[in-house]
Design a protein around this nucleic acid. Sequence first.
DNA 1: TCATGACTGTACCATATGTTACACTATTGA
DNA 2: TCAATAGTGTAACATATGGTACAGTCATGA
Lengths: 278, 278
Amino acid sequence: MKKTPSLTDLVAMAGAELTPTDRRIAQAVLAEPTLLAFGTVSHLADQVGTSRPSVVRFAHKLGFQGYTELQRQVRAEVSRRLVRPSERIRNDETTDTSAHQAINDAIDSVFEIVQGLDIAQLVKPIVEANQVWVLSGETSRAGAIAFCSGLSMIRPNVHLLDDRSISNELSNAGSGDTAVVFDFYRYRRLVVTATRLLAQSGVRIVAITDGPLSPLVELTDNWCEISVPAIGPFDSSVPVVAIAELLVSKIARELKGKTTERIDRIESLWESTETFFQ
Amino acid sequence: MKKTPSLTDLVAMAGAELTPTDRRIAQAVLAEPTLLAFGTVSHLADQVGTSRPSVVRFAHKLGFQGYTELQRQVRAEVSRRLVRPSERIRNDETTDTSAHQAINDAIDSVFEIVQGLDIAQLVKPIVEANQVWVLSGETSRAGAIAFCSGLSMIRPNVHLLDDRSISNELSNAGSGDTAVVFDFYRYRRLVVTATRLLAQSGVRIVAITDGPLSPLVELTDNWCEISVPAIGPFDSSVPVVAIAELLVSKIARELKGKTTERIDRIESLWESTETFFQ
DNA sequence: TCATGACTGTACCATATGTTACACTATTGA
DNA sequence: TCAATAGTGTAACATATGGTACAGTCATGA
């Protein structure tokens, strides 16, 4: 029992009482629903090769008061198809595992971005950099930590800047370096201004942030958008950590030969200082 | 080099020269592109709470001759998404998809644990604690950061112990306190020994670790098992961060009313120190 | 053959829509 | 404090749009 019958259903219902012209319209519209979702009466009429009134009559036959109403119906249908499949499920079953869903969606979108976007754009400056400086806001701190932790294993000269070290260390950065900045809405003033300073001194910027409206975006072309879900009342850093680790793995692949050597070195260093328990 | 820049790209390009109203429009449109694809100037203006001319000006700022042209662009973008919704599967780099799978599985198991296990066992000592001490190994550092960051918002006396502070601070811990320890295979010697010392001085231990064989397990009954997936050649901290944030949200629910007062204080502090950019 | 009815296009209208010019307001800098 | 400027809304306008009445066309049956 559907509350809203689909366009196909409506055409089927109208069925027998459709005139030849109606059928041509139906055919066109079923093949390309955007004609109806986006187009005007005139446009659709032209496409089908008929007159505007015929289109309106078609809408009447389908049980609508006019073209406008039919269009509204089709647009709703199209909108539903646009949202992510998992979201569709969530909307259907109102479970209270919303945090779980939100995180899964966010993770999915992270991988989507990594595959779709030109990730090499983000990786290249980090690989080539003389020194790498990492900055982060509050919710993104965990991501920055994960990034530094991983990146330190595969290349030298990785520095994590926090509130204390930032003012001292900033002067050591210069042309040939790259700064990787993690920050999200309620963008931290200190982080933004520091990034701006770095950009001005010729440091290449790679930004992980939450959208084109972020103040970080205007400082670089190498940025990537991450959506931040909520766990309970707080913003989650899970997706940030995920993208951070993905970046590291991409960089590792790029560095190839040099990488294994360095990891071995670090591992032996750790073992010699008895950092590990087993 | 994209032939047709996406809406996101366009907003990013316009960047700095967007007025506050422009940004409100951009935000609305990025969150819900159908507003632009389907809606009229009036409708969008109403949704955003502005006037029609502002919407048209927004289109101009993005480099279009008018709203109509901007709409055409967005419709094309939306149409593309309708035709091939499986754009995600396009690139099949096996490393990514397997990492994706691994992370999703790990996240799933985290939520299973949280729902299945008696999570109250972990939450209770933290809620009741006089002071909370947080320790972590290397891969779990990000989780510890996330945990501290969240927990500090909702209760006082949360201390993150790192290699430097651990020897000094350890003596401040005692009966009535709780230590939350994150550590995984290749257990960090410093963390394990410190935890043992804490346990001996009557500090309650909550451990997030990787199984019953962990040296942390023999120090407490309040522990929970997390599986660590791999992203490329590295261990991922994503599940640790997830469980950390889930713990925080559970604790927040437990503390209920007491938290709001503290959060308000922190907020006003942030405001007076102008911590944030916007 | 004509009459009937269904089907389709033309002509027209009220309204909604995108757009522009202009006026008002708030903010900035001297 | 005042002038200048950027930002935003009001008013007006030409056009596009959905809708309807009416006329023309075609097929069918007597």
